[in-house]
Structure formats: structure tokens, C-alpha cells
Design a protein around this nucleic acid. Structure first.
Length: 724
DNA sequence: ACGGGTGAGACT
DNA sequence: TAGTCTCAC
């Protein structure tokens, strides 16, 4: 216990979660068939094999014994009265946009009270540290006369409902305990805030959600799943050990897969508590430095994973599988499907651009394939990427080129005649295209950069470096545009593998303007595509697409309607520093935070939230450059350990996290699109709106960069070698 | 040859 | 870096 208490560094973050099955289900229920409410229902994927796969099952249906792994047909057997609704289909594939949008709607509400991280389509983490502290200071639970019912319905782990007395009464007592540990008081405040948010979500969207409230994300996540649906669970500080002690190891996030298996079979660890018997060194020895440390911490309920403050996805993808007999066996069919996928992707990119002013820089193609009678038939189909050019047709074009390059590589010596009709050598069982390296359009940033020219920036992470580099000097990894031309028009030219890829070039402003031109290019949809297709046409394509065979009119991508004002791009092309310089600065200036200091005119720690205790943390005080990447870890344990690797932190920094999780179940109508400027957590609010975003982007990573998901990055930086 | 479509992140 | 792999919803 001692170890727990002393090493458990509480921050206050509240994490929200929205669970996808319910989300899917209820959206459908509400929007399309409101009368399904209350009936056993499931959402099935369009694919009609055996009635389609269930991807969401309502609670009523679960009671009937319907499980997610079932097919539609099976569910009918178990529960004849079940109502099956189909997931929307577009372009011959499932279309999840409805769900994405619904998730956004919830995010926009949750983000009113604190920093939000959209962890997935249906999960949101929320850091309510500030809100909880404010509440504690201004209106602590004990002074409230009336306490909302929703709060009283909280589940508080470890709360012995004293001699079977009223559960709500004991919750009320716990919430209002005067002598409680400050950390628990903060959690109590978190419970209030979360309850309110959940009610708000319900009111505004008709979704219900579950939540977990704890001092870090992983515990909040754990808690959020403990009482569903539509309930919230609090993990008091003192309950952590008890909770984890008996928790099956695989229930812990990140341990549900192979690592968890290995812990069980190799170390005989069955519960998280079992992990306690292993020294950190031992764990590192077996799983590597980062994972070892991460495990050691997790066993004690410690996690340095910080709520990131990101509301938008880092990538967009569109993909489809072609299982078994549906495998694609001709280039023509691959091309056709790529067109569909790219069309969807392009649409989403365009939306992102319009709504969020962000640009994706990299296009990636993934596929899985099989091939027969080849020595290395187990070789995986390689992924390929290239600079992303906006415009549906260009994306389609480039994706096809990537595919062909990958296919050649995959087939190796076989490469011979890929063309022709049906081949018996290979088949494509899945295809996907995605866009990544998405960065905000540097509107406004350039001026800021200029303004602070010479000032060190707050960069500390890969991401922030990107931002800096990209924003300051708009150098998208724009390859030669000729790249794909070459590949497409002469697909059979022999490329020794990688050479097909364009190297990222130093980009000058001219090139940048090229890029802009590209963006504005009307891009007659079929132009080069037809060429490409002609080469492969005449094959029979055994797949049925949504029939957008001709690329003529339809999805022309509303070409840049928003770009009448080349405003953003104009700024793009006035780099104030050349790229190298930028890079150098970004790297060199790690750990400083002049910008925030400038704005806040105080608080050298650069952390956007209150940092009353953080002064204890040496990194923060030493802005120039610390060996570790982050200047402020969210986990004081890490910090202490960085100095005293063997020591438990003597004192927690009093910086507590409250994390909660949400699960959505219902909604009402109403389209939504979010505006990141309006969703604005904390401190930076006072800044002029147009620069808030940039500043935040600079600050956030500085505050913490958790490069290693399951490992202490500190360990990574401070431990000289990795003992395997 | 089915859970399918998506996403994030670590490793190398 | 780009590409692979794991994990999760």
C-alpha cells in the first residue's frame, strides 16, 4: 500500500469515453427508425453473407443472448424478434461518416469543461484538472445543499455501502467528506463535473454515456467500462490497489493482446497485482526498457499518459476487405475499388480542409494479398506512400501507382505480365488508402513566427517539430509531381522498388506555389486515369461497385470552393525561414517556452494549466534543454525517477488527474460540424482567437510528449542502454 | 475464408 | 523515413 500511495502520482484528468457499439446502434435507432427504441436491435454490416456481421448489439438484444461475434442469421436464431438495421453503404462499402459526426457532436460538448482528447470514434478523454480545482476552491461538494441525482448514482469503487445502507447516501457522504484526501476531493469534484457533462450530452444529443473518473487515463478507462450503460464510476485514490490487485491482466488496456498473453504464459501473471512481484529490471529484461517500466508503473496504477488535447483525427483512411472468393484478381478491379476508396478519402480530406483548415501531406496505400506457388508466398504485401496531392483524380492516380509499385515488389521476379485478365497467381484481399501527416494550414502562424523570430519555441516533440517546420516554412513533403505521372503513364517501367518513390525534396516557395496550384487544379477527373485504365480494361471485373463507373461528373470534389481567397496559401508562400533553419530551431529550442511566457507574462513552466505544485519538477524550471524531451511530464513519478531511478517519489506533486469515460447510447437529429476554435479548454483562451490554435499546438507537445505508449519515455532517455 | 473499417502508436 | 506490427473500438 505504501508503495501505491507514495508512488501514485495523481494528476487530475477526467476522461470520457463513448462506446462505439452503442453509438452505432443508437444513431441508427434514433435517426432512422425511432420506433426501434427499446427493442432488441443490432446493427449489421451490409455484407449479406449469413445475414451480415453484427457490429453493434443493443442491450435488449444482449439480454437475449445475442453477441457481437454473431452473424445476422445466428442472431435471429437466438433472438427471433431481433431487429437488424444496416450500416450505411456508399461506394460499395460501409460508410461510417454518420458515426464520426455523431462522435464529434459529443466531443464538442465534453470539451467545454476541459482539455479533450478524441481517442477514437467513440472515446473521449477529458482532463478536468482545472475545472475540478476551481470547483474545489469555489464550490466544494460539502457546501452544496442539493446534489444532483446523477452524481449520487455514481459508483465509487471501494466504498463499502456501509451495512447495506442506502447506496446513494454513502456516495453522498463520500462526495462531501470534509476530511478527505485532497486528491479524493478533486475526484469528487470530477464526478460532479462529469455528471453534469453527461446530462448535458443527453440533453443536447440524446446520447447517454458512461464515464470513469480517476487520476489518469488508464484507470479512467478501466473504470468507464465497469458500469454500463449510462453510469459513471469513480476510482478513489485508496481503491487503486484493491482494484488492480484482482484485476485480470488482460482487462488492462494494452494488455488485451499478445503482451498480455505473454505475461500470463511466460511470467504466470494472471492479475495486475501479480505484476507487483517483479522488479522493474526484471520486466525490462523481458520486455524491453520502455515496456518494462510501463508495466511496472501500471501495476501500481501509475500512468504518465497525458490527455492530449486533440479533437481531430491524425489521419483519415478508407478501406475494404475482399475476403476469400471476393479477392481481387485483376488490376482493373483493383483500380476500380481504389477509385471508390480514394473518392471517399478525398471527400473527407476536403471536408477536413474546409472545416478545420488542415492539409494532409502523405498518401499511404495498404493492401493484403496472397499469392500461390511461390517460394516466398508468405511475403506481405508492402505498404507504399507518396506525397499527397489534393483532388480526387490525383489521389486515385497516385494510389494506383503506389499499388502497382507495391505489387511489383510483392511479386518480385514474377513481375512479368501482371496485366491481362484473371491471373491465378495472386489476389488482393484488402485494400485501403489513408492520408496522414495532417497539419493545420499555417494561417496566422507565419506572422506569429515572424513576431517571435529569434525566440525559442516550445517545441519538444516530433509532432511539434512538424508543426513548426510545416507552419513556419510550409514545406510539405511535396515530391515531384511527376512522380505519379511517370508511374501511371509508364507503369511498366522498371523500378527497383524504392526508386519508384519520390524522395522528399527540399521545397522552396516555388514548389509551394506548385502545390497550391495543385490544390486549385480543377483536375478533369478522368484525364490520366483513362490512360491507366485503358491499359487494363477489357478485363472482367468480378466486383460490383456502387456503379460510379464513369468518373465524369459526379464527385468532382467541389473544387476548392473555399479557396477563392488564396489567403491561407498566400501566407504559405512567405516562409520566414528556410527549412533547415526552421528545423534547427525546432530541434534546438526544445524545452523552452518563450511564447507562452510572452503571452502569460509569467509561469516559465509553459504549462497551460495551473501549476501550483509543478515547481517541484526540475525540468520545468530548466527550460533551455533538458535531456528528456518533455519539459513537463505529467507524471511526477517519472520525474523523480529520472533523478533517482530507484527511489519512489517522495511526494506527489499534488497535481491530480481526474479521468472519466463516456459511452453514448442515443441521440437526436441534427447535423454537426465542429469548430476547433470554439472548443477551447483552458488558459489560452485569452489569446486572440486567430492565434490560439497555433500557440496551443506549440505548447501542447511541450507540456508532454508521450512518444512511448506503453513505456516511460523517461526511461528511454535516461537509461543508457536497453537490456534485452 | 470474415468482425469490418478505422485509427493510434511503437519499433526498426 | 517509410514500412511493419500491435492494439483497440
Amino acid at each position: 500500500m505504501e508503495e501505491f500511495l507514495s508512488s501514485y502520482c495523481p494528476m487530475i484528468a477526467i476522461c470520457g469515453l463513448v462506446s462505439m457499439p452503442s453509438l452505432l446502434y443508437f444513431i441508427v435507432e434514433q435517426r432512422k427508425q425511432p420506433d426501434l427504441r427499446g427493442l432488441p436491435t443490432a446493427v449489421v454490416q451490409y455484407n449479406a453473407w449469413k445475414g451480415g456481421a453484427l457490429i453493434a448489439v443493443s442491450y435488449e438484444a444482449r439480454k437475449c443472448g445475442v453477441k457481437r461475434s454473431m452473424r445476422g442469421a445466428e442472431s435471429k436464431q437466438v433472438c427471433p424478434q431481433i431487429q437488424l438495421v444496416q450500416v450505411p453503404v456508399a461506394r460499395g462499402k460501409a460508410d461510417l461518416s454518420t458515426y464520426r459526426n455523431a462522435g464529434s457532436e459529443v466531443v464538442s460538448i465534453l470539451s467545454r469543461k476541459g482539455r479533450c482528447e478524441r481517442a477514437s470514434i467513440d472515446e473521449v478523454y477529458l482532463d478536468l484538472t482545472d475545472a475540478a480545482e476551481t470547483m474545489l476552491a469555489e464550490a466544494p461538494p460539502e457546501i452544496l445543499e442539493v446534489i444532483d441525482e446523477e452524481v449520487l448514482k455514481s459508483h465509487v469503487l471501494g466504498l463499502n455501502s456501509e451495512d447495506g445502507s442506502d447506496a446513494k447516501e454513502s456516495v453522498r457522504k463520500w462526495l462531501c467528506r470534509n476530511d478527505a484526501d485532497r486528491r479524493d476531493k478533486l475526484l469528487a469534484c470530477g464526478a460532479f463535473i462529469i455528471a453534469e457533462l453527461r446530462l448535458q450530452v443527453l440533453k443536447e444529443t440524446e446520447f447517454t454515456c458512461s464515464a470513469g473518473i480517476a487520476h489518469n487515463k488508464i484507470l479512467a478507462k478501466l473504470a468507464s467500462g465497469m458500469n454500463k450503460p449510462a453510469q459513471q464510476t469513480v476510482v478513489p485514490f485508496s481503491s487503486v490497489k484493491g482494484l488492480l490487485g484482482s484485476l485480470p491482466i488482460k482487462k488492462m488496456k494494452q494488455l488485451g493482446g499478445k503482451l498480455g498473453d505473454s505475461l500470463q504464459s511466460d511470467l504466470g501473471v494472471n492479475t495486475v497485482g501479480d505484476l507487483l512481484q517483479f522488479s522493474e529490471e526484471k520486466l525490462q529484461e523481458r520486455y524491453g526498457v520502455n515496456t518494462g517500466t510501463w508495466l511496472w508503473n501500471i501495476a501500481r496504477g501509475i500512468s504518465g499518459d497525458e490527455v492530449e488535447g486533440r479533437l481531430l483525427p491524425k489521419s483519415h483512411g478508407s478501406g475494404k476487405t475482399f475476403p476469400g472468393p471476393q479477392a481481387l484478381k485483376t488490376i482493373a478491379s483493383v483500380q476500380r475499388w481504389l477509385h471508390e476508396l480514394c473518392e471517399e478519402l478525398s471527400e473527407r480530406l476536403q471536408l477536413d480542409l474546409d472545416q478545420n483548415k488542415r492539409i494532409a501531406h502523405t498518401l499511404v496505400l495498404h493492401a493484403t494479398a496472397y499469392k500461390v506457388s511461390d517460394s516466398d508466398s508468405h511475403k506481405k504485401f508492402p505498404s507504399k506512400s507518396c506525397p499527397l496531392r489534393y483532388g480526387t483524380a490525383k489521389i486515385q492516380e497516385d494510389a494506383l501507382s503506389l499499388f502497382q509499385a507495391a505489387l511489383r515488389e510483392y511479386l518480385g521476379s514474377y513481375t512479368a505480365k501482371i496485366q491481362g485478365s484473371q491471373n491465378n497467381h495472386w489476389g488482393i484481399t484488402s485494400l485501403s488508402v489513408s492520408a496522414s501527416k495532417i497539419v493545420p494550414i499555417p494561417s496566422g502562424t507565419a506572422s506569429i513566427t515572424k513576431y517571435f523570430h529569434g525566440h525559442p519555441s516550445c517545441s519538444s516533440t516530433k509532432q511539434s517539430q512538424n508543426n513548426l517546420v510545416e507552419e513556419g516554412t510550409p514545406v510539405p513533403p511535396s515530391g515531384n509531381e511527376s512522380y505519379s505521372e511517370v508511374n501511371v503513364t509508364k507503369p511498366q517501367i522498371e523500378f527497383p522498388g524504392e526508386e519508384t518513390m519520390i524522395k522528399y525534396a527540399e521545397t522552396s516557395s516555388d514548389q509551394l506555389e506548385d502545390k497550391i496550384d495543385l490544390l486549385n487544379d480543377q483536375n478533369p477527373c478522368c484525364s490520366s486515369k483513362n490512360q491507366a485504365r485503358d491499359e487494363f480494361t477489357q478485363e472482367t471485373v468480378p466486383v460490383s461497385t456502387s456503379g460510379s463507373e464513369h468518373c465524369s461528373g459526379m464527385n468532382q470534389n467541389q473544387p476548392m470552393k473555399n479557396y477563392s481567397g488564396e489567403e491561407p496559401y498566400v501566407k504559405l508562400s512567405m516562409p520566414s525561414l528556410n527549412r533547415q533553419e526552421q528545423k534547427r530551431k525546432a530541434v534546438k529550442d526544445k524545452g523552452t517556452c518563450s511564447i507562452l511566457r510572452f503571452f502569460k507574462n509569467q509561469d516559465p513552466s509553459c504549462a497551460p494549466q495551473k501549476l501550483e505544485h509543478v515547481e517541484n519538477i526540475e525540468d520545468v524550471k530548466a527550460p533551455p534543454l533538458s535531456p528528456g524531451i518533455q519539459s513537463r511530464s505529467n507524471n511526477c513519478l517519472d520525474h523523480n525517477r529520472s533523478e533517482l531511478p530507484k527511489e519512489r517519489p517522495s511526494e506527489d506533486a499534488g497535481n491530480s488527474n481526474v479521468c472519466g469515460s463516456f459511452q453514448i447510447e442515443q441521440r437526436r437529429g441534427g447535423a454537426w460540424s465542429y469548430n476547433i476554435d470554439e472548443i477551447d479548454p483552458s488558459v489560452i483562451d485569452e489569446l486572440p482567437p486567430e492565434i490560439q490554435q497555433e500557440v496551443r499546438a506549440w505548447i501542447r507537445p511541450h507540456k508532454r510528449h508521450n512518444t512511448v505508449k506503453r513505456g516511460s519515455s523517461i526511461a528511454h532517455y535516461f537509461l543508457p542502454t536497453k537490456n534485452t
